[in-house]
């Protein structure tokens, strides 16, 4: 193992220890105080259910993750396009951004039932739509901030080379916006899973993870509900991690990132 890798591993040790201790304490306390299963099942119980039901759970997880991914791609893509448009045509941005900022503060998830009505309960697009709307605003707002808050001198320099608008966008504004874009995408990755699952709570096919969790708890099968929640969390964390990894690979040059790492 290389030195850097070993150092990484050592850095993770405390977090792993806390995780193990936490699970252990949960198990111990639930057993010691005879907590009712519907309140909180033991981790061992959840793990066993997870294993027994792994086939169905996995398929449900994948189904829901695909909805989240679709919504993420759609919402983030449109968010990026809108940000480019608003940055290129300032009057457009000035006219529309107040609404985007306001919409970002609205609990958009409340529209989930409406989406189910519009696109159909069983149609995965109804969940994608809600995830997409959730992703759209943070990606738009962050990307636009990145595109417009560029050091004016770096634009001046481009002007001194008689660079045109398109060139300034391609060579300065877009690369400079990447750290902001990823800040938006990381938020969106989390929101897209929330959107898909909550959308399913308002109704969806039985092979969806949200519906599985809902039904399990309705039929007092709490370990299965918890197993579903664990899986949803795992997908959420992995998705976030994948976006963070893409960020790491594309913005290694970012000095603010360095400052953070050397802290």
């Amino acid at each position: 193992m290389s030195l850097a890798l070993r150092r990484q591993a050592i850095q993770w040790l405390p977090a792993l220890a806390v995780f193990a201790l936490g699970i252990g304490a949960w198990q111990g306390l639930v057993a010691a105080f005879h907590v009712q299963e519907f309140l909180l099942p033991k981790p061992s119980e959840i793990a066993r259910t997870f294993w027994d039901e792994r086939g169905t759970l996995w398929h449900a997880g994948i189904y829901t993750f695909k909805e989240a991914l679709g919504g993420f791609a759609l919402g983030s893509g449109l968010g990026i396009l809108a940000a480019l448009l608003f940055a290129a045509y300032r009057p457009l941005g000035i006219a529309f951004m107040p609404f985007a900022v306001a919409a970002n503060a609205v609990p958009i998830i409340a529209f989930a039932p409406i989406m189910n009505d519009w696109f159909g309960l069983l149609n995965p697009f109804s969940k994608m739509a809600i995830a997409a709307v959730l992703c759209f605003f943070p990606v738009l707002i962050n990307t636009l901030r990145g595109l417009t808050s560029v050091d004016p001198r770096s634009i001046e320099l481009m002007h001194s080379y008689a660079a045109g608008r398109a060139s300034v966008f391609r060579r300065v504004r877009i690369p400079a916006s990447l750290p902001h874009l990823f800040a938006g995408l990381k938020i969106a990755s989390v929101l897209s899973m929330i959107g898909a699952i909550v959308g399913e709570y308002f109704g969806g096919p039985t092979n969806a993870l949200g519906v599985t969790i809902l039904n399990a708890s309705a039929y007092t099968n709490f370990p299965e509900a918890w197993a579903g929640i664990v899986l949803a969390s795992a997908f959420g964390i992995l998705f976030y991690g994948a976006v963070a990894l893409a960020e790491l690979l594309t913005t290694a040059w970012d000095p603010s990132r360095r400052a953070f790492h050397t802290e």
Binding site: S160, A162, P175, A176
Partner: peptide
Amino acid sequence: ARLDHDYGIVFQEAVLYDWR
């Protein structure tokens, strides 16, 4: 003159592009 690329400018600060 600017459009004809007549200028080479060095600013007071380096003004480098971080991603390059």
